[in-house]
Amino acid sequence: MLDFSAVLPYLHMFGVGTLITIRASIVAVLLGLAIGVVVGALRVLPFASPLRMLAAAYVYVIRGTPLLIQLFFIYFGLPSLGLNLPAFTSGVIGLGINSGGYVAEIVRGGIEAVPKGQWEAAKVLGLSYLQTMRYIILPQAIRNMLPAFGNEFVTLVKESSLLSTLAITELTMVGQQVRSVTYASFETFALVGLIYLLLTSVTSNALSWIEKRWQVR
């Protein structure tokens, strides 16, 4: 029968794993946002340029290849070029670069969803491209982006479980370790799943809260 007491002695390990998952997720979200905002902004440049093409290529490659391969490439592949990164760093960078590709598309979509008339009104009033972006387009675009950001961040928290393949002792890795000691597979992964559910709930509730605040402003 099910026996949850078997995993109780390892609770602190779950705690440590959860913290590592949280840390990796937060750093990767920030990295992904930074990359995504820049790449997304380049994608909507009003004139064709090498930067815009580079941004498009980035999104194309990131979205067209599995995250697992991207992680392997950074952790196992880059050392061949002489770039040795610690597992945690590799994992977070991989997650962040991956998320950046999706965030870029959200940013682009959010900006493009603002009606053309807004650009035109701003132009005739004499605002420059950057001023229009800052005062007119982005405040409206961010409102469009927030629900999609919520999705993206929740996805990222869940996908951080792939970091276990780089031998990082985040939550999923801890689960595997505890299972191999206790053989209580059901109980272990039920607990792991529950913790992920908690993390994703907090993430999406936080985003909903921000979304509501932004509507009021």
Binding site: P115, G117, E120, A121, A122, V124, I136
Partner: peptide, 14 residues
């Protein structure tokens, strides 16, 4: 020099 009034107003909604 020139101001423009649009059919759809194009006010800034935020």
């Amino acid at each position: 020099m020139v101001g423009m009034i649009f059919q759809q107003f194009n006010l800034f909604p935020h």
